[in-house]
């Protein structure tokens, strides 16, 4: 592959992702309205689709304010970390055969590393704001994400054992006969739950819980710095959906009548809608319930899953 092709792939992936991130503003509001029996945005443009433009313009032109009591540099860096780490994760995702920015040998581990770097944006954002609600949100976010990272990593190990590789294209190719969600249902469920906790979406949006903590770690943010947290969250949803599609639902694989990338985006979009449906329907648990649920239920389950998968693989090998 020539250098120019690489550049085009990188630019193309970036363009598509940022547009999806912004477009999800509209998708989420319309779908939430549909499921909660409301109208949703319907003023700007057909079906209110221009709300994407209106929202983005509003974010850009709001005063970009750094509170005088904040730690200036940390306050500025924090929102950039979330977007950067999520975009870095997309580097290893194969969108279609041959369309991947870098097909690393350690692709899956790279994804886990980047999602663990994402914690810093919450911790630092909350700490630098120098505000007690923000700090509480940051503490919750840090403990929640550190805990669920463990389950996320372990839930993928069954798939890795069956494929024998951390490379995402190998994982997709290994699903030619049967998608992994049939062989690894527990892995899928735990990965998705951990994914919701990692992106701190409802019902697990405890770090920002607006009814208790105002807005949690981003209470002091405004303008485009808040916009970065906002876009980072939507990109995070897209990332978890894309990873679920790649690892458990065969990525670009599908019947021949449609090209691979159409299948990939269809699957990804289905999971994005599922994320929004969860937000529309489930209430938020208490913070200690969330942690208890993770360590007392998910951890034993995921360890048993790894052990049984390994045992069965060894048994089949004879």
């Amino acid at each position: 592959m020539t250098v120019m092709q690489h550049v085009w792939i990188v630019l193309g992936v970036l363009f598509v992702l940022l547009n999806i991130g912004a477009g999800l503003i509209w998708v989420e509001r319309r779908m939430l309205a549909l499921w909660q029996d409301r109208l949703g945005p319907n003023r700007a443009g057909p079906l209110g689709i221009l709300i994407v433009l209106a929202d983005t313009l509003k974010l850009f032109f709001k005063e970009d304010w750094v509170p005088p009591f904040a730690d200036k540099w940390v306050f500025i860096i924090a929102p950039a970390i979330v977007v950067a780490s999520v975009l870095m994760s997309f580097v290893v995702i194969p969108f279609a055969p041959g369309i991947v920015v870098a097909d690393l040998n350690v692709g899956l581990l790279f994804f886990l590393a980047m999602s663990s770097i994402g914690v810093y944006s919450i911790v630092l954002g909350g700490w630098a704001s120098n505000n007690k609600y923000a700090l509480l949100g940051a503490l919750r976010g840090a403990s929640q994400m550190i805990a669920y990272e463990v389950f996320m990593g372990l839930s993928l190990m069954g798939v890795v054992m069956m494929t024998g590789s951390f490379k995402l294209t190998d994982i997709v190719e290994a699903q030619r006969d049967m998608w992994f969600f049939i062989k690894q249902p527990i892995g899928l469920v735990i990965f998705f739950i951990a994914g919701i906790a990692e992106t701190h979406r409802l019902p697990f949006d405890i770090p920002e819980a607006e009814s208790e903590l105002i807005a949690g770690y981003h209470a002091e943010y405004s303008g485009m710095k808040f916009g970065m947290f906002f876009i980072g969250e939507y990109l995070g949803i897209t990332l978890i959906s894309a990873m679920t599609a790649t690892i458990f639902f065969g990525g670009w694989l599908g019947p021949e009548f449609l090209p691979g990338w159409v299948w990939f985006f269809t699957k990804t979009f289905a999971f994005i809608l599922f994320f929004i449906l969860l937000r529309a329907s489930l209430p938020r648990p208490r913070y200690d319930q969330l942690m208890e649920y993770g360590w007392k239920i998910l951890l034993p389950l995921v360890l048993a899953n790894v052990m049984i998968t390994g045992a069965v693989l060894l048994w089949l090998k004879g």
Partner: peptide, 20 residues
């Protein structure tokens, strides 16, 4: 990658946690 996951991603977050 493990250096990033373990040290940068987990241990340093706990450091930050304690210092905060």
């Amino acid at each position: 990658i493990v250096n990033l996951i373990v040290y940068a991603g987990a241990i340093m977050v706990l450091f930050l946690f304690v210092i905060m």
